[in-house]
């Protein structure tokens, strides 16, 4: 999979929340987005995921622009801001219901995802009774359970305890090794650098820096 943003600008009212962003991403790599609150990280993720439309420019997946009825990438797992599920159903049931739409995985696949995020023990508890951390884990499980080609994780470490953070880092590595393209935003610089192959620093909706991990594992400034 290859994602390409061509001069993408997103405007709300008179404000450019994303301005003239061009970038290219491919499978088997983790792309980190870094920046202060409100700099446009989540908006960029929403543009790539097809949730919002560019005011100008194009988002292309494998050369095809996201437009019209097929405005979402074909195989995508998504965790953007607060995950939301049906409160009166268990975490497991919620995932099973969503999995039934594509029909790619069965109950075993759901169980596997729940185990990977460390939620298997509480899988049959109602979602409405989940703590914030458990909700976040379920959101991560939902994003990765169908082994999608593109995974967008917006602040996945929020509300997670130390063990869960480690597990999530492990999941990101496993998904990358599987060949998924992962886009990650995170305020913890150590976690971001620990997971990412490339880091884009966003300032006021514009790409300001691009850091690429070299052979020695160090990040070096690269051309945008």
């Amino acid at each position: 999979m290859e994602i390409e943003l061509k001069n993408v600008t997103k405007t709300f009212g008179h404000t450019n929340v994303i301005e003239d962003v061009s970038m290219s991403m491919r499978s088997g790599r983790v792309y980190g987005l870094q920046g202060i609150n409100g700099c446009g990280k989540t908006m960029l993720m929403r543009l790539i995921s097809g949730l919002i439309h560019p005011t100008s420019g194009q988002v292309c997946v494998d050369g095809k622009p996201l437009v019209g009825e097929n405005s979402f990438p074909e195989s995508m797992g998504l965790l953007i801001e607060n995950p939301s599920f049906l409160k009166s159903y268990s975490g497991r049931k919620n995932l099973e219901m969503l999995a039934s739409i594509r029909g790619r995985i069965d109950g075993k696949g759901v169980q596997n995802a729940l185990e990977r995020v460390g939620l298997a023990e509480n899988a049959d508890k109602k979602y409405g009774k989940y703590s914030l951390g458990m909700r976040q884990k379920l959101g991560i499980a939902c994003a990765v359970m169908e082994r999608p080609d593109l995974i967008l994780l917006d602040e996945p470490f929020i509300s997670l305890d130390e063990a869960a953070v480690e597990r999530t880092v492990q999941i990101i590595r496993e998904e990358k090794d599987r060949g998924a393209l992962i886009i990650l935003s995170c305020h913890d610089y150590d976690l971001l650098t620990g997971c990412s192959d490339e880091i884009y620093k966003i300032v006021a909706g514009k790409l300001a820096h691009r850091l690429v991990r070299d052979g020695s594992g160090q990040f070096k400034e690269a051309a945008l």
């Binding site: 949730l51 009825e69 405005s71 979402f72 990438p73 939301s84 599920f85 969503l98 739409i101």
Partner: peptide, 17 residues
């Protein structure tokens, strides 16, 4: 649309559906 619908739409790849 502001909650679980996002997960459904992305799986359907279509807002119209």
């Amino acid at each position: 649309i502001s909650s679980g619908g996002v997960q459904i739409m992305s799986r359907l790849r279509g807002r119209g559906r």
